[in-house]
Structures are given as C-alpha cells and as structure tokens.
C-alpha cells in the first residue's frame, strides 16, 4: 500500500532532491524532447552517460531504477524481436534457416532499447526525487500565466492536491469495504470473469457514497475556515529557485551543444 500512498517518491537530501521542482519538471520535459534528436551511437552513449551521472547524483539505489524499468521490459523485448527479425537493410549479420538478422535491424534494436531506457529513467528520476505535492505546486506555478486566458489553474491545483491527499484514504476505505463484504460472505477471487466483475458492485457503491459525504464535509470545513478561491491566497510552502537551478540550465545547454556536435 505504501507504494500507492506516496507514489514513487523516495525522500532524500541529494542534490537532485533539492532542485526546484519547477526547474526539474521543465528540464525533464526538455530532455525528453532532446532524446528524440539523438540519432547516432555516439549521441546515445553521451545521453546514457549523462543519465548515469544524474542517477548517481540522486543517491537512489540502482535496484529501484531497475524495478522502474521492469514494466517496460515486455515492450522493449517486443520491439527488439520485431526489429531484429523484420527490419531489413545493410549487411547480413546472422543467417539462420528460419530468419536473417540484418545490420540495420540490430542497429534499430539497440537504439530503441536505449531510447526507452533513457525516457523511463529520466521520468522515474523526476518522480523518485519530487513528491507529488511538489509536482502539483510546480504545475500550478508554471501554469499561472494562463490564468489570464481563463484557465482555472488554481482549481486544477486544488483538485490535484485533494486527489493526491485522499488517494491513500480512498485505498484504505476500499480495503475496509472489501473486508466488510467478505465478512458477509462476498467472494472476490473465485468464479468466472463475469461473477468476479459483478462482485465489485457492492464495493463501489459504499466507496462513492462515502466519497460524496467526505466532499460535503470537506467543503463545509473549508468554507468555515474562510476558503474563497485562488485569488490572494498565500502558500504554506513557497517554491524558490536556487543557484543549483541555474546549473541545471547550464547543464541543459551543455547537453544541447554536445548533441549538436555529435550528430551526423
């Protein structure tokens, strides 16, 4: 359960943890676009090296990153097999009676696996070192200019933080309801797929009703404390850029120049 409670966040005090969440968010998005410009073995090696340095700086154990890669192993394997056997071009590397592996196929396989790994590790690095709440604050702060265009940025952030705050509560509640129904003889594990699907109805109804009650109570409580929308609100925790974030910009420019020099 704790996994869902905090998302993938791993608290820490490393350099990466201490970066401003806004800077991290922008960097990761820019980096993910940058990855698509990489088209050569050298540039991929360059980005891989950078990603490894970032992983090292985050002081998060390699094992956790490997766990994050597990869900996409299937996809990587699938594309690998696909490209190995079906992409044609270049010299023939392996000639077997049932299949032929071409140079181009091998190249594509390696590149795509690296691209997958780069994207997933960078995204994990962001969610490992930034709590969901910080990310929400970063979103709100970055989207603030759009308030003038009529985008309800504050409400978006409010909804996001309420959802994040209550996900563990809702999960506990679901577990409690499930146990209560099991005590009454409900069976969630056996039976065919139709029966199992239908067994969720008595769990979902109390869940939604209690969610509604909670919403009413929370609205009343917020109003009693004088909540009146986003305008003029102050924050408990404010975000501040530090000199580390300037370094992040410099690193990004370095990455761009490096990639530009290495591309063919």
């Amino acid at each position: 359960m704790s996994q869902i409670a905090i998302g993938q966040y791993i608290p820490g005090q490393s350099l990466i943890h201490r970066l401003d969440p806004r800077a991290k968010l922008l960097f990761v998005f820019a980096y993910m676009i940058l990855v698509f410009f990489s088209n050569h073995l050298y540039s991929y090696t360059f980005l891989l090296a950078f990603t490894f340095v970032a992983m090292f700086l985050s002081r998060i154990s390699l094992r956790i990153f490997l766990l994050a890669l597990k869900p996409i192993l299937f996809l990587i394997g699938f594309t690998m097999i696909f490209h190995l056997f079906l992409t044609k071009g270049g010299a023939v590397l392996i000639q077997l009676p049932i299949m032929t592996v071409y140079e181009e196929g091998l190249k594509q396989t390696v590149f795509i696996s690296i691209r997958f790994i780069l994207l997933v590790i960078m995204a994990s690095l962001l969610t490992f070192t930034t709590s969901p709440m910080d990310l929400t604050d970063a979103f709100e702060s970055l989207l603030k200019p759009f308030t003038r265009l009529g985008l309800p940025v504050h409400e978006f952030a409010l909804m996001m933080s309420i959802a994040l705050r209550f996900i563990p509560t809702l999960w506990d509640e679901t577990e409690k309801i499930k146990k209560a129904q099991m005590a009454r003889g409900a069976d969630f594990e056996s039976g065919n797929i139709l029966r199992r699907a239908k067994s969720y109805i008595p769990v979902l109804i109390p869940l939604f009703i209690s969610a509604f009650r909670r919403a009413e109570e929370l609205a009343l409580a917020m109003e009693a404390r004088g909540y009146k929308g986003g305008e003029g609100r102050t924050k408990l925790r404010e975000l501040h850029y530090t000199h580390y974030d300037v370094w992040l910009v410099i690193v990004f420019i370095g990455l761009c120049i490096g990639l530009w020099l290495l591309r063919r």
């Binding site: 209550f166 996900i167 999960w171 609205a219």
Partner: peptide
Amino acid sequence: ERHHLTKTIFLSLLGGSAFLIQYFDF
C-alpha cells in the same frame, strides 16, 4: 458557492477513485 466547492472536491475524489480502480484490472 459551497455546492460548487463540494462539486470540485467530489470530482477530485472520483478522479482519485478512478485512478485506484485502475489497479483492479484484468
């Protein structure tokens, strides 16, 4: 105003439970 707030909160709770329900996939 309070109903608007209740609605906002209820929708975020429903969004949260939709996210949780995704875990019971088969």
